Amino acid sequence: MPVAIVSIPVTDLDRARAFYVDTLGLALLRDAPMGPDMRWIQLQPKDGGATIALVTWFEQLRPGGQQGLMLGIDDVDAEHARLTALGLELPAVAEEPWGRYIMLTDPDGNGLILSQLTDPQEIRTR
């Protein structure tokens, strides 16, 4: 069964929405009231795939507690330059056999990895 939604715990829904939509470029699928004092904010990479829900209501999920969520990108160097131009302080692009990547955090400290993955066929032939 495929992954449908990954919950990202945040403190401020508006600030988190702005980061994920305006900075990272995810598409906003829904922003709707969900009971008293709650909202359902659901995002998706523009190319599709699993979605992200920004959550404030899970007691066990603490803002900043989501680490290692990997988002696939086509060109890590271009994305690094784009995000740096937007004012994000990022480490240099790193490289591993599985791909090239940059690590960053959202405004709440949730850790994200933007990765340009290596074709698994290429890894097997090395």
Rank of each mutant, 00 (worst) to 15 (best):
T23H: 11
P120D: 01
D106P: 03
F58N: 10
I41C: 03
G68R: 01
L61A: 12
A85Y: 02
R126E: 08
V76D: 01
L13C: 08
M103L: 11
G109Y: 01
T84A: 09
E89A: 09
M70I: 13
G111E: 10
M1E: 11
T125H: 08
I113V: 15
R126S: 12
G35D: 03
F58T: 06
L24V: 02
L88Q: 02
Q116P: 03
N110V: 05
Q44M: 13
A94W: 04
N110T: 06
V55I: 15
G68M: 05
L26N: 05
Q67S: 13
Y20W: 13
L112Y: 00
K46R: 15
D108S: 03
L117T: 08
M1Y: 05
H80M: 05
L90Q: 01
E79F: 08
E96D: 09
P45V: 11
G48M: 12
D47W: 08
P120A: 00
R62Y: 07
V3Q: 07
R124E: 13
P63I: 10
L24G: 01
E96S: 08
P91W: 07
V21S: 07
D22E: 15
D47C: 11
K46Y: 08
M1R: 10
I123C: 02
R39F: 10
A50M: 11
T125E: 11
P9A: 06
D119N: 15
I52Y: 04
G64D: 11
S115I: 13
P107S: 05
R30Q: 14
G35M: 02
L43V: 07
G68Q: 03
V10M: 08
T84M: 02
A53V: 12
D12V: 10
R17T: 15
I102C: 00
H80Q: 06
S7M: 12
Q67C: 08
R30D: 13
R39C: 09
L61R: 06
I123M: 12
I52V: 15
A94R: 15
D77E: 15
H80C: 02
T11V: 06
G35I: 02
Q121H: 08
G49I: 08
M103P: 00
L86K: 13
D12K: 03
L117W: 04
L26R: 06
F19S: 06
P63H: 10
T125S: 13
V21C: 14
M38A: 14
D47G: 13
P97R: 04
L88G: 00
I123Y: 05
L13D: 06
L43F: 10
D22K: 11
A50V: 12
M103Y: 06
